[in-house]
Design a protein around this nucleic acid. Structure first.
Lengths: 330, 330
DNA sequence: TTTTAGCATGTAATCGTTTACATTACTATT
DNA sequence: AATAGTAATGTAAACGATTACATGCTAAAA
């Protein structure tokens, strides 16, 4: 394929002039510019981005790390990230980590290899130390899941408050035996959502009972399985708060199999407001995270860091919203 | 950050020797190698991939273009692509096109800019001419959606046969008024699936009636809307074949709103077998595409092209499977 | 002892750009 | 007419790696 010097030769100018035409960095006479442009068109020349980026030590690319693109929750965030990135001249590289630290490290190596100018991490498996070290070398932003107390910017919702409001809604419907289906992992959001659950119970004068708590991995299957167990309790819960929509849907299917009516026999509340939660029958009450905005904000914050606007770490908490639908109707 | 010459200096050798240690390309004495490795560790040196790739004119990266990562159908394919890529030392760059030709072109520019060694295109919006020209410059493979008659490798299922079998299944259940919800686009699969629908009708001695056909965009909403119209017909269809699971789910919700029972009053068959189709109530009869394998195969084919094993175009048709569930139960 | 072979290593060109600096040819000012 | 200023363009040095070729050394072969 043609290089810049092929173009220069054809247009009978130096490579510098071609480069100037390419970048509009400095004045070139209209006639020369025309000649160069014609040569570019004739040769179908495209700048080699490796060469350009090497020279500029800038890749104009952002690495986006997420556990699983098949999760519609992340897909929506990615759209926000991508829109802001594109608007600012960046492209994004999406990488699945499958929650595998090795796989994640492999991708981080690209980042350190200057293939990206920065990264947005979602549900990273790295330790606090690894993260801190990485952030010293490369601009990074944590999105949704984050490690607290680090000097690394993050964007998320107020998970404790969101859970509190969701459970409070169940309390308001008159429920007293409210189960909790959480996530067994090291993420802060898991702990915070449980905190919110407990606070809502406490305020309503309901004793917290660990027997009514189960822990899964956000998946439909785990929600299904855990709900089965919870329904075996005596007395069984009359409501359940799940920390993901998929688990909530699993819980509903589980209850339906036991011939329970939703919401009459069991009220169910999810978390995330993924697209499917409104297609499902009964439609799902859930905490809506502003996924698109989370993505946009994360990207904006990252660009600020990359372009040197921001010094310290910034922490953003975006507004969530409790969406009440059929699964907890009166 | 440290460069190769920092390492060379620290280890008191030339950059060539450091490079040799890095690549194991040529023999280096054990003592020197050790010294170099120590220097690398001390400086936490990582090769600059831009420099390396520029020199090697190889990026070890694959561009994967898809319309929308939020579509779980593509997500599963991507996993296959990624697994094979990683196994062969490639990384993938996922890019959303949003079915926007401009956006797609922007990403293609990266490809031409040597930022990727090849690409897998899913549901590309490019014209046959553009595709053909691109394929002359860069290794590409079409996955799932493809343009027929081009000398560009592709991997997909036999869409005509799959649709034929699905509709045949409905015929076998005794249905005579079978509606069709297709897709209004230029993709070959749309035409082929309709062909299969028509062939099954014809074989069963049922006249094809365009009134029973609607066309959407694969989305839940379009399925919902079109089904509403079809149910307004008199006599209304007793079964419907949809070319996507999302449209099928939309159709079911639409029918439910009219107080129809699935499958007693209306049998529904989808296409794709996305994860949600088994969570949905009633569970969905659908054509299962081997998504993971489609991805794996596409990537294998692409690697063969990149590494110069393959000359001409190869066309792969993978096996599909009709999965019968509640939505068409007897 | 001299020649030869082979190993370890260094030197320098190269990949395709960008860009600081140098050069040239005008025009405007004195 | 001499000088300064400016616009257009060219020259060459980067960016950070890889690698063909050159070199120096040691040990085996003649």
């Amino acid at each position: 394929m043609a290089t810049i010097s092929d173009v220069a030769q054809k247009a009978d100018v130096s490579v510098a002039t071609v480069s100037r035409v390419l970048n509009g960095s400095s004045r070139v006479s209209p006639e020369t510019a025309l000649r160069v442009r014609r040569a570019i068109a004739e040769l179908d020349y495209r700048p080699n981005l490796l060469g350009r980026n090497l020279r500029r030590t800038k890749s104009e690319r952002i690495l986006v790390l997420l556990p699983n693109i098949a999760n519609p929750f992340y897909a929506e965030i990615v759209k926000g990230i991508e829109d802001v990135a594109n608007r600012n001249g960046y492209s994004i590289m999406l990488c699945n980590t499958d929650s595998d630290p090795e796989r994640e490290k492999k991708h981080i190596r690209m980042l350190k290899g200057y293939l990206a100018d920065g990264a947005i991490l979602m549900a990273s498996e790295m330790t606090c130390e690894e993260l801190t070290e990485l952030s010293r070398e490369v601009p990074i932003v944590q999105c949704c899941e984050y490690r607290a107390g680090l000097t690394i910017s993050h964007v998320s919702i107020d998970n404790e408050m969101a859970a509190y409001q969701a459970v409070n809604h169940l309390v308001g419907l008159g429920h007293r035996r409210i189960a909790f289906i959480g996530a067994r992992n090291h993420f802060l959001s898991s702990a915070l959502r449980k905190d919110g659950y407990i606070r809502a119970l406490k305020e309503a004068g309901i004793a917290f009972d660990p027997v009514y708590c189960g822990y899964g991995d956000y998946s439909y299957k785990s929600g299904f399985r855990i709900m089965k167990q919870l329904l075996g309790l005596n007395p069984r819960p009359t409501a359940v708060f799940c920390v993901s929509d998929l688990m909530a849907i699993g819980a509903i299917r589980s209850a339906m199999e036991e011939n329970l009516r939703i919401p009459r026999d069991l009220a169910v509340c999810g978390f995330d407001n993924i697209y499917f939660s409104s297609m499902f029958k009964p439609t799902l009450t859930t905490v809506s995270q502003p996924m698109y905005d989370l993505g946009c904000t994360a990207m904006e914050v990252l660009i600020n860091i990359i372009e040197g606007q921001t010094k310290g770490a910034a922490h953003y908490f975006l507004d969530h919203e409790l969406i009440i639908r059929e699964s907890t109707a009166k």
